[in-house]
């Protein structure tokens, strides 16, 4: 039986409906990073000589929304859907694994894009931060980071069978992204040994790449190479991972 575009659209639509119904997901994911940015940038703006430099913090907040959606929400849902038999039930219908992952990905992309425009709107309307002259490329680069984040999320969460296992990982992962990505603590001020934790953090490299695209600065190959290595690792892991509660 062939799956039509209408069928995929319906699955995507109900996936979104369910996402916005779930308490403690939709609003915190979309609102909290924006609120944090307003508070943070607002407190800094009082003393700042120029607001232009604030733009360097925008990518990190956009990535944070993407991380919360793709890693925190979709990643844990991926595990709980396996646990509650939803995956098995979907796979026993004419829907393929590709359709299921596609639906997750489309939602991750959509919420991340909403977060992107939310941050741009706050930056432009609240703080009058000048926009990048490279905005289209910046947007495309952001989409690429979301796709890589999705790949990381599905690969790593593929190792977990139930929510009890995945919660500690998600909490540690969240703290790692907050403290070892340059978001809260400047990397230059960290002890040398801790900097290695930052250098293996894909979120740190995503942030660095996006900042350079925003300011039209030349890219450093080490950031691109680091992300490329992560992509290769994920693809290798997926290749050897047993699939979604089936041994087909």
């Amino acid at each position: 039986m062939k799956i039509s575009a209408k069928c995929i659209w319906k699955q995507f639509w109900y996936d979104l409906v369910i996402f916005f119904r779930e308490p403690f997901f939709a609003l915190p994911i979309l609102l909290l990073p924006g609120v944090f940015f307003v508070v943070y940038a607002g407190s800094m703006a009082k003393d700042a000589a120029s607001i232009e430099g604030f733009a360097q913090y925008l990518p990190m907040y956009m990535i944070l929304i993407s991380f919360l959606t793709v890693f925190f929400n979709i990643g844990t849902q991926y595990v709980t859907d396996k646990q509650s038999g939803i995956f098995k039930r979907l796979l026993l219908s004419p829907i393929s694994l590709f359709n299921v992952v596609l639906t997750y990905s489309l939602r991750g992309l959509l919420i991340s894009v909403l977060g992107f425009f939310e941050m741009i709107a706050i930056a432009a309307l609240v703080f009058h931060i000048p926009m990048s002259s490279n905005m289209i490329l910046f947007f495309l680069a952001f989409l690429v980071t979301v796709i890589i984040m999705m790949l990381l999320s599905l690969t790593l969460h593929g190792f977990f069978k139930n929510s009890r296992q995945v919660m500690p990982f998600t909490i540690i992962g969240f703290q790692y992204v907050l403290f070892a990505s340059g978001m809260i603590m400047p990397v230059e001020n960290m002890p040398a040994v801790l900097r290695y934790l930052v250098y293996v953090n894909p979120v740190y490299h995503m942030n660095q790449i996006l900042i350079r695209v925003w300011y039209s600065a030349p890219q450093k190959m080490n950031h691109i190479a680091a992300l490329a290595i992560w992509v290769v690792i994920c693809l290798v892991l997926i290749r050897f991972q047993k699939g979604f509660a089936t041994d087909k």
């Binding site: 039986m1 109900y14 409906v17 369910i18 119904r21 779930e22 646990q83 509650s84 038999g85 939803i86 995956f87 098995k88 039930r89 979907l90 796979l91 026993l92 219908s93 004419p94």
Partner: peptide, 19 residues
């Protein structure tokens, strides 16, 4: 083809909670 012609009720349920 088999999957399109079988009906399934799983022990775990396999249904979205909020739907």
């Amino acid at each position: 083809e088999i999957r399109s012609r079988i009906g399934v009720m799983l022990q775990e349920g396999g249904m979205y909670s909020y739907i």
